[in-house]
């Protein structure tokens, strides 16, 4: 297991370098003046421009630039926003909010997704199953920002059950509605994945053998069907945590949640490319680490993987 973890960790290194290089390359080595890219095309004071040139070492060859950028990334020296705040400090303030939001969304996905998926899978072809299936298709088809506006309008404005926008401190209870919106699409995927997995496993030979041993129906379902079916679901949930952090950009925009996504959204609108690059790089790291955790989780859940 330790060996396995180590190997997975080693495999992560090229992905980390590749992804950050990709981001960096896109911004700094594509045609056009990177300063223009960083400034969002707006005119800026020579002092700001000079600061940017220094921050990104634009007078150096590309590879040295990239190396210094990595060094800055690792040491969290991410430069300043246009208004002169440290980007690292801004991210540090916004990050806990997004983390809270993503964890709530993940919990909603996990609880309701697995619950509905298991019921639908065990009763394949029945009314509940068909209803859930159609509902999940609809949820997947409706874009998150439409869902966000509709729920904001209905639940927040018309019914008044929740605040349509989140206040500065972003306490847990105000984040429920945004978390539902954020998690809803993935929820639909979790339901469908769980359902497929359950109904496939129900027909597995070892389930029939378990039944033939004289186990109760309940035990067969919990010990043999559920445990095996949840392996792909947990993998999906783990990978989704990283995606939720990135996907929060739309949801946080709609509900005005002061998180990383919102930060990114505003930085894009203002054309603060330096901030955009910094935030995206951080998100890539989160995503890569989340994937590592998922791999380890997967190996822990499925003994066949560990020895490969």
């Amino acid at each position: 297991m330790v060996m396995f973890a180590f190997r997975r960790f080693l495999q992560l290194i090229p992905v980390f370098f590749g992804a950050t290089l990709l981001v960096y390359f896109l911004v700094f080595a594509t045609p056009g003046d990177p300063i223009a890219a960083l400034s969002g095309g707006k005119p800026m004071a020579p002092a700001v421009e000079a600061a940017l040139r220094a921050q990104y070492n634009l007078d150096q060859p590309f590879w040295i630039q990239y190396g210094l950028y990595l060094k800055n990334l690792v040491t969290l020296n991410l430069g300043q926003t246009f208004s002169g705040q440290e980007v690292s400090a801004v991210i540090a303030r916004a990050y806990p909010v997004t983390a809270r939001l993503a964890i709530m969304a993940l919990a909603i996905e996990a609880i309701f997704g697995v619950l509905f998926g298991v019921i639908a899978g065990l009763r394949k072809g029945k009314l509940f199953d068909s209803t859930v299936l159609v509902a999940s298709l609809v949820v997947i088809a409706v874009p998150t920002f439409v869902l966000g506006f509709v729920l904001q309008l209905v639940v927040g404005v018309k019914l008044g059950w929740a605040r349509p926008t989140v206040s500065g401190a972003a306490p847990w209870n105000e984040l429920i509605l945004p978390a539902v919106v954020l998690g809803l699409v993935s929820l639909a995927y979790v339901i469908r994945l769980t359902r497929t997995s359950i109904s496939e496993n129900m027909n597995a030979d070892y389930v029939r053998t378990a039944t033939a041993k004289g186990l109760s129906r309940r035990r067969v379902v919990v010990v043999h069907i559920l445990r095996n079916s949840l392996i792909p679901v947990i993998t999906f949930l783990g990978a989704d945590l990283g995606a939720l952090m990135g996907g929060a950009i739309v949801t946080e925009g709609i509900f005005n949640v002061p998180g990383v996504g919102n930060l990114l959204y505003k930085a894009i609108l203002k054309g603060e490319s330096a901030t955009v690059v910094a935030v995206v790089s951080i998100l890539v790291i989160v995503f890569v680490v989340a994937n590592l955790i998922v791999d380890l989780l997967y190996a822990w859940l499925d003994p066949r993987i560990r020895y490969v």
């Binding site: 070892y206 389930v207 029939r208 053998t209 043999h224 445990r227 095996n228 499925d302």
Partner: peptide, 8 residues
């Protein structure tokens, strides 16, 4: 091959 549960 398929009649023992692989995870137990």
């Amino acid at each position: 091959m398929s009649n023992l549960n692989p995870v137990w």
